[in-house]
C-alpha cells in the first residue's frame, strides 16, 4: 500500500514538498511524529497497558530472584 502511495501522483507531490526549503522541515517532523510508536491508539489502550505491566512485573520478579540467588 505504501509502495503504491509513493508511486502515486499525491505521493510524489508530498515527497517533493518534503524537500522544499520552507515546508520541508515541518512536513518531515510531522512524518516522524506519525511514525512514532505512540501514534497508534492501541499503544495507549488499557488492555495493552495492563499486559505490559504484567510482563514487566514478571521480569522484575525473576530479576529479584536471581539477585537473591547470587
Amino acid at each position: 500500500m505504501i509502495k503504491n502511495l509513493k508511486n502515486s501522483f499525491l505521493g510524489r507531490r508530498i515527497h517533493r514538498l518534503s524537500r522544499d526549503p520552507l515546508f520541508g522541515a515541518p512536513l518531515r517532523a510531522l512524518a516522524r511524529l506519525l511514525r512514532h510508536d505512540g501514534a497508534n491508539p492501541a499503544y495507549w489502550s488499557r488492555a495493552n497497558r495492563h499486559h505490559n505491566r504484567a510482563q514487566r512485573a514478571a521480569l522484575a520478579r525473576f530479576e529479584a530472584d536471581t539477585g537473591n540467588q547470587s
Binding site: D37, A42, N48, H51, N52
Partner: peptide
C-alpha cells in the same frame, strides 16, 4: 509472543 505491545 507475550512481549510488550503485542497488541500492536
Amino acid at each position: 509472543l507475550d512481549y510488550l505491545d503485542r497488541a500492536l
